[in-house]
Design a protein around this nucleic acid. Structure first.
Length: 272
DNA sequence: GGGATTGTTTAAAT
DNA sequence: GATTTAAACAATCC
């Protein structure tokens, strides 16, 4: 369930490993993760060297020479890793970018919800989904954050999860940030005072930074490219803890559904 | 074996 | 028409 901290951890780990190395060919083991088709993908990536690896929202972006960009979305169970032996291919590998020295960048995905797309120079910005992404939560000041929620009647939790409003936040960090700022996930976004939204901004940045320092959160599938688990799951206050006592006040944590997402909160600490 | 799990797209409703 | 919600989807685990 990689969200911003997990994808950022992956991109930071891959960048020094991949930058400067050339992709000799793309081995497509399962074309279903290539929505534009295997032939298109192959034609764009083969023969090009990696110039950078970075993150935008929950996408891992691999820049190739000549301006080609590979965008990987890991969705629930996708992983990126570098393998030294490609024969046999690693388990659940879907696409392998073979590098000139024999290593391979492996995109594996147990449930196959994830996808890889390659974009010709300049075309990433023509992708509707990419263009619709909201600002990066760690890059904006409180003054830019609060207006995002000023004129929407939706629950604040739904707005936080909407990638067009703000990018990179998923269920874990939305619940944790709302707990830290004392806001009930069902609270109507537009009714929150600027003070409470400022507190939410601080909580979002704090929880994302702390998770980043911990290498992300591993619920089940997430691993860094080195294959190690994140550690931030040990610091959850509310996520996945319904029925347990609130770490702050001891009241029993409750959960409810907001836009088909489980939201866990403390009925004592978090107010509408 | 039904429900839970994810983020995104698309359809429907308000 | 715009905003918001619901359903669908991918596949697997418990």
């Amino acid at each position: 369930m990689p969200e911003l901290p997990e994808v950022e951890t992956i991109a930071r780990a891959l960048s020094p490993v991949l930058t400067g190395r050339r992709i000799t060919r793309a081995i497509v083991l399962d074309p279903s993760v290539l929505p534009d088709g295997a032939a298109t993908f192959r034609a764009l990536v083969e023969g090009r060297a990696v110039t950078a690896v970075r993150r935008r929202a929950k996408l891992c972006l691999i820049d190739l020479e000549g301006g080609v960009i590979v965008a990987v979305h890991l969705k629930m169970t996708g992983r990126l890793s570098v393998a030294e032996t490609l024969d046999p291919p690693p388990a659940r590998a879907r696409v392998i970018l073979a590098l000139e020295d024999g290593d391979g960048l492996v995109f594996s995905d147990l449930r196959r919800f994830g996808s890889c797309r390659a974009f010709a120079p300049g075309e990433l910005d023509t992708w509707d989904f990419y263009r619709s992404l909201g600002p990066e939560p760690l890059a904006i000041a409180a003054g830019e954050f609060t207006p995002l929620f000023a004129k929407t009647s939706r629950a604040i939790k739904a707005a936080l999860l909407d990638q067009r409003v703000i990018a990179g936040i998923g269920n874990i960090y939305a619940d944790e940030a709302l707990f830290r700022s004392g806001i009930r996930p069902t609270a109507k976004a537009s009714r929150l005072t600027p003070e409470r939204l400022t507190a939410l901004h601080a909580a979002v940045q704090a929880v994302l930074s702390e998770a980043l320092r911990a290498g992300g959160s591993t619920i089940r599938d997430y691993r860094t490219p080195e294959g190690i688990e994140g550690a931030f799951q040990h610091h959850f206050n509310v996520y996945g803890r319904a029925g347990e006592p609130c770490p702050a006040c001891g009241k029993k944590l409750k959960s409810t559904k907001i836009t088909a997402r489980t939201s866990t909160y403390c009925p004592g600490c978090q107010k509408e």
